[in-house]
């Protein structure tokens, strides 16, 4: 390192005075970062500001609309007393939790099997699961209406709980395969030599070591189910069984009339659970997002 530094110093024109360096960093790092942050966060800020404005202030652009003059909680009160928002929040939470658990159960087993066990066809099944990405919900929702009808699941949360795993399992399996592959084989082999069965080795050694990965997969699955829109738009019509994204976009807009205050209050509240969850586990989240990509 020292020699590198000296080499650099020795070259003409590279020696800079301290102030100049700071300006350079500002132009190179701080200003672009600030710009990115402003553009990224402004919609959330606008969401929050709008939700605290009174009806008259909402459409008053004669003074700066960027802050609230007389904050009010009216929209929030209205949301909880006059709409089915509490039901939607509850439904969303139930669907997200149960479909996450189902997907985790399936993909931990499948991920372990595909990453660790050697048998004929493992590679092609792994590929097959990856290829399901080519069949996104956009391609499936119309035929699925018949499947859901035949199972008598319309207006039933199970219609979502059973269909969400179709896009959660491939993602989680793929992610967990990465995690299982990163656990040294020797650990399990040592257990096998000591007389443990394959299933014991899996439950007592591989799965506990993969817990960070399982947590990351859980976060992903929960967020994806919390955000899902298309299936819930089509399978649920009764206001009481709707999820937040569908309830908000369908019932808080009446024809051409937009109740922006209420809409933004609902959007903010609907975003809070995932935002909180994510801020606690951001490192797991990032690790999970990139496990497959980096370890590939």
């Amino acid at each position: 390192m020292a020699s590198v530094a000296r080499l650099k110093m020795g070259k003409p024109g590279t020696g800079r005075i301290v102030g100049d360096k700071w300006v350079g960093r500002a132009i190179r790092i701080y200003i672009p970062l600030l710009l990115l942050l402003v553009v990224t966060l402004f919609p959330f800020y606008w969401m929050a500001v709008t939700s605290f404005k009174s009806a008259s202030e909402l459409f008053d652009f004669s003074v700066s609309p960027l802050w609230v003059r007389e904050p009010t909680l009216d929209w929030y009160k209205h949301l909880f007393t006059q709409t089915n928002f509490p039901h939607w929040a509850f439904n969303t939470a139930v669907v997200a939790t149960v479909s996450t658990l189902i997907s985790l159960f399936c993909s931990v087993l499948a991920g372990y099997s595909l990453a660790r066990l050697r048998y004929r066809g493992a590679d092609s099944i792994g590929w097959g699961i990856f290829v399901t990405y080519l069949v996104p919900p956009t391609l499936l929702f119309l035929p699925l209406t018949f499947v859901i009808r035949d199972l008598h699941l319309f207006n039933n949360l199970w219609s979502l709980i059973l269909t969400y795993p179709t896009f959660l399992i491939p993602f989680c399996t793929w992610m967990l395969m990465g995690f299982f592959k990163s656990i040294p084989r020797e650990l399990e082999e040592a257990a096998l030599v000591d007389g443990a069965t394959r299933i014991q080795a899996m439950f007592r050694i591989a799965i506990p070591l993969a817990i960070p990965g399982i947590l990351a997969a859980a976060l992903f699955a929960f967020t994806l189910s919390w955000n899902e829109f298309l299936y819930s738009l089509i399978f649920l019509n009764d206001s009481l069984v709707k999820t937040i994204p569908v309830g908000v976009t369908q019932e808080l807009i009446h024809g051409d009339e937009f109740f922006w205050g209420e809409l933004m209050a609902a959007a903010l509240l609907g975003s809070v659970p995932v935002a909180v969850l994510y801020s606690f586990f951001v490192d797991h989240f990032v690790a999970g997002m990139t496990a497959g990509a980096v370890k590939g």
Binding site: L33, L36, L37, T40, L41, P43, F44, W46, M47, T50, L58, F59, F61, P65, T223, W226, N227, F229, I244, P245, V246, V248, T249, F258, W260, L263, M264, A266, A267, G270, S271, V274, A275, Y278, S279, V282, F285, V286
Partner: peptide
């Protein structure tokens, strides 16, 4: 900063798109 920059990807798409629709409002 890293957490903040990742937010748009986490927040339910439909909800943040509603905010954008309001930001793109024809008159306001």
């Amino acid at each position: 900063v890293r957490a903040a920059l990742l937010l748009p990807y986490i927040i339910p798409t439909v909800l943040s798109y509603e905010a954008w629709r309001w930001m793109f409002d024809p008159t306001f």
